[in-house]
Amino acid sequence: MSIRPIRLIGDPVLRTPCDPIRTITDGTRALIRDLMDTVDDEGRAGVAANQIGVNLRAFSWNLEEKNGVGYILNPVIVELSEELQDGDEGCLSVPGLFFPRTRSAYARCVGTNLEGEEIELAGEGLTARLIQHEVGHLDGALYIDGLERSVKKRALRQIRETL
């Protein structure tokens, strides 16, 4: 079991778009084991590979909803609802801080598993928020990037004071 340390805001790996996984290797399998172990730590819903310092397109999730625990390689969001949801959002890379963020109420992404088979993760509520959040990480974005301007200003100030 290998719970990897989470990279924090300010680490350049979090702002670098991740490379696609082109070949499944022993290193890829080890990455997925580490992502699964790391997301299984208490209070975690999702972990993107760059949050543990690996610049590859993969994330793991741990949802008590119908989607349970899993991982996806090379996820691409293929559907977002026009209907929106509001709610406080946090991030392991911005620890202890939560800010209101609007997201699509439904999201669906597709990717592959370690056997190269196509898989999908889809849902509403927390699942939709997780998909958008984690794929954002893989694109080099943090959830604070999409905050409303006044909230983002407050968030950045709190981040500077906290970290």
Rank of each mutant, 00 (worst) to 15 (best):
E42D: 12
M1N: 10
G125W: 08
S104E: 03
E117M: 04
L126F: 15
M36D: 07
T28E: 14
F98I: 11
V78A: 07
R22V: 15
D19W: 09
I9P: 05
A58S: 12
V78S: 08
P20T: 10
E124A: 15
G46H: 07
G96K: 13
D86I: 09
G87F: 08
E65Y: 13
L147Q: 07
R103F: 01
E82M: 03
Q132Y: 07
R154G: 01
H133I: 11
I77M: 01
R129I: 08
I52T: 02
V54D: 07
E118T: 11
L84F: 09
V54E: 14
T162M: 10
F99Q: 09
Q85S: 11
I21L: 12
E134M: 05
P17N: 12
P20D: 15
V76T: 14
G125E: 13
T127H: 07
E120N: 11
N67S: 15
G10V: 01
T127N: 01
T38A: 00
V69L: 04
L35R: 02
R29D: 13
R22N: 13
D41N: 00
D34F: 01
G90M: 06
E79C: 09
T25N: 05
E79N: 10
E115Y: 15
F59H: 07
G87E: 04
R154P: 03
G111R: 14
S93C: 10
D88H: 13
R15P: 12
V47T: 00
T38N: 00
L142I: 06
P95V: 03
K152M: 03
D86V: 10
R108G: 00
S60T: 01
P95Q: 07
V39E: 02
P20Y: 15
I3W: 04
L31K: 06
E65Q: 13
T127W: 04
I21N: 14
E124N: 14
V69I: 14
W61F: 15
V135M: 04
F99N: 05
G70V: 00
K152T: 04
R15V: 12
N55G: 13
A58R: 05
E83F: 09
Q158A: 12
L163S: 11
G125R: 11
P5K: 05
P75S: 14
L138A: 03
K152I: 02
L84G: 00
T102Y: 02
K153V: 04
